[in-house]
Amino acid sequence: MTLSLDRVTATPAALLMIAALRERHGPIMFFQSGGCCDGSAPMCYPAGEFAVSDSDVYLGKLNGAPFYMGLEQFAYWEHTQLIIDVVVGNGGMFSLDNGTGRRFLTRSRLFTDEEFAQLASQGSGAAS
């Protein structure tokens, strides 16, 4: 039996922050683009307040919150598992973590060749 492999995951600290933001703001979602400054960090929005395009890639859910990435950025990160963490600092200007004294941060690790082949067989990372 082969277990499903996640393209995006979160640390326990990030999961707690997601739960706190959901309690305060209701359903939330994430988007990570390839832009500079705030756009290079995972941004957290109220669900439905960020327009996801047909070319954006759905990577999975973090504690129930969908996580998307721009297609061009995904081309650079497709061999990498994203690990969303929380650190001390200010979040992006329009991100829900702004003003909390903590911000989301993307860490990563390269998939092994075996894991990447498994992702391909799962069809993981398709546009959504």
Results as ranks from 00 to 15, higher is better:
Leu21Gly: 13
Met69Phe: 00
Lys61Ser: 08
Glu23Cys: 05
Arg109Thr: 11
Ser108Tyr: 09
Ala41Leu: 14
Thr112Ala: 13
Gly34Tyr: 05
Thr80Val: 02
Ala20Asn: 12
Cys36Ile: 01
Ile84Leu: 02
Asn63Gln: 15
Ala13Met: 00
Phe74Leu: 03
Pro46Cys: 14
Phe30Val: 05
Leu16Asp: 10
Cys37Asn: 15
Ala126Ile: 04
Lys61Met: 14
Gln81Thr: 12
Gly70Lys: 00
Arg109Cys: 02
Leu16Thr: 15
Pro12Val: 05
Ser40His: 08
Ala14Arg: 03
Gly64Val: 09
Phe94Gly: 06
Phe94Met: 07
Pro27Lys: 08
Ser128Trp: 02
Ser53Lys: 09
Leu3Gly: 11
Cys36Trp: 11
Ser95Asn: 03
Met17Thr: 00
Glu114Arg: 15
Ala117Cys: 08
Trp77Thr: 10
Ile28Trp: 05
Leu59Glu: 00
Glu114His: 15
Asp38Val: 10
Arg24Gln: 09
Gln118Cys: 05
Phe67Thr: 03
Met1Phe: 02
Met43Asn: 07
Ala120Gln: 13
Ala127Arg: 14
Ile83Trp: 06
Glu78His: 15
His79Cys: 09
Thr2Lys: 13
Gly125Arg: 03
Gly125Asp: 10
Arg22Cys: 05
Gly39Pro: 05
Ser128Cys: 08
Met17Tyr: 01
Ala75Asn: 12
Ile28Val: 12
Glu72Ala: 09
Ser55Arg: 01
Gly26His: 11
Glu114Ser: 04
Asp113Trp: 08
Gln73Asp: 02
Ala117Phe: 11
Ser95Gly: 06
Asp97Arg: 11
Ala13Ser: 15
Gln81Lys: 04
Met69Lys: 04
Gln32Cys: 03
Ser124Asn: 02
Asn90Ser: 14
Leu96Ala: 12
Pro66Met: 10
Pro46Ala: 14
Leu62Ile: 04
Leu5Ser: 05
Gly26Met: 11
Cys44Pro: 07
Ile28Asn: 07
Thr11Gln: 08
Val57Trp: 01
Ala51Arg: 12
Gly89Ile: 02
Tyr76Val: 10
Gly64His: 13
Asn63Arg: 06
Leu5Phe: 03
Ser124Met: 12
Ser53Trp: 00
Val88Thr: 13
Ala41Gln: 07
Ala13Trp: 03
Ala51Leu: 10
Gly92Ile: 08
Leu110Asp: 11
Arg102Cys: 06
Thr80Pro: 01
Ser33Phe: 00
Ala126Met: 07
Ala41Cys: 06
Ile84Lys: 00
Asp56Asn: 08
Asn98Gly: 04
Leu5Val: 09
Asp85Gln: 08
Thr11His: 08
His79Tyr: 13
Ala41Phe: 05
Tyr76Asp: 12
Ile18Gln: 03
Tyr45Leu: 02
Ala47Pro: 00
Arg103Gln: 14
Cys37Phe: 10
Thr106Trp: 04
Gln118Thr: 03
Leu16Trp: 00
Ser33His: 06
Arg103Gly: 05
Val88Cys: 04
Asn98Phe: 10
Arg7Ile: 09
Ala75Thr: 12
Thr106Val: 10
Ala120Met: 05
Thr9His: 02
Gly125Gln: 01
Met43Lys: 13
Ile83Asp: 02
Gly34Asn: 09
Lys61Leu: 13
Gly39Ser: 08
Gly64Met: 13
Tyr68Leu: 02
Leu15Tyr: 02
Arg109Gly: 03
Leu96Asn: 13
Ala51Gln: 11
Lys61Thr: 12
Leu15Met: 04
Asn63Ile: 04
Asn90Phe: 14
